[in-house]
Simulated assay, not measured.
Amino acid sequence: MNSPVLEKPTRQNSVLLYNLTWDALERLDVELEGTGARLIYLDGFLEITAPFFEEHEEPKCTVSRLIEAFMRERGIRFYIRGSTTLGKRKDGARREPDESYSLGTKKPIPDLVLEITVTSGGISKLEIYKRLKVPEVWFWEDGTISAYCLQENGYERVAQSSLLPDLDLVVLAQYSRMADQYDAVNEFTQVIRGM
């Protein structure tokens, strides 16, 4: 199977369904409510993933707190969107980001999406976010942050965020790897105050 909507082979903790209508997606969403399963949909492909807990949630929370500390220290108004479901039938795409933020004002589509990658494969997240016109997507994987900015022809990997150009992503990644979240946020806050 060769499809532009799929990345590498699908994950071990997921099921991939083909030729699924939007109506079928909505029915499954209701049936799986409360299970913790995440639904990712693009052009008839549906990936249902089992929840990850500590290996996923801990880095998500740490990176999120670090980003929020930076924005607070810089006086950047932001609104946490969390893992609000993005995408509608007209988009042919749907995804729940791990974390998301609107900067400046509340918006229906967040400015920044954070994805924590603990496994690879499945439906292309960047293809979904491109369709939804999310300006920036950051991936955290094994303590490294990769940032992608939306351009006219799709996402381009960048070394520095367009939304938060003063935030050093290498330093952010360094503090995301600290074992103690509380210490990581405190020490990171001291570092950014000195910048």
Rank of each mutant, 00 (worst) to 15 (best):
Y18K: 14
S162V: 15
L172Q: 06
L16C: 08
A69L: 09
G122D: 05
G75A: 11
G92S: 06
V118S: 04
K60P: 08
V191R: 07
V134E: 02
K90Q: 13
E136G: 03
S124T: 00
R38Q: 09
K130R: 15
Y79A: 00
K107S: 12
F70Y: 12
Y18D: 14
D98E: 03
Y101N: 00
Y175K: 06
N19T: 12
E187Q: 14
S64T: 15
E54D: 15
L16Y: 03
Q181R: 15
R77Y: 14
L6T: 05
C149M: 10
R27V: 12
Y182C: 10
E33A: 12
D183T: 14
P108D: 15
G34C: 03
R177I: 04
T117Q: 12
R81D: 13
R193V: 08
R94Q: 11
A69H: 00
L172M: 03
E99R: 01
H56Y: 06
L42H: 10
S120A: 13
D43I: 04
V30M: 12
L39R: 02
R89Y: 14
E58Q: 14
G82A: 07
L39Y: 04
P108I: 11
V191H: 03
A159M: 14
K107I: 12
H56W: 01
D23G: 09
R89K: 15
F188D: 00
S64N: 09
M178N: 08
L28V: 08
T21R: 01
Y175F: 13
E26P: 05
G143P: 03
L16W: 08
K88W: 09
T21I: 10
L103P: 07
V137M: 03
T84C: 02
Q12C: 11
L17V: 09
K107E: 09
V185Q: 07
P165K: 12
E127W: 07
E68F: 04
V63E: 05
A159K: 15
T62K: 08
K130L: 09
Y148C: 06
A24E: 13
I67F: 10
I145R: 06
F78Y: 15
E47M: 05
S146Y: 12
Y182G: 09
K88V: 12
D168T: 07
L112T: 06
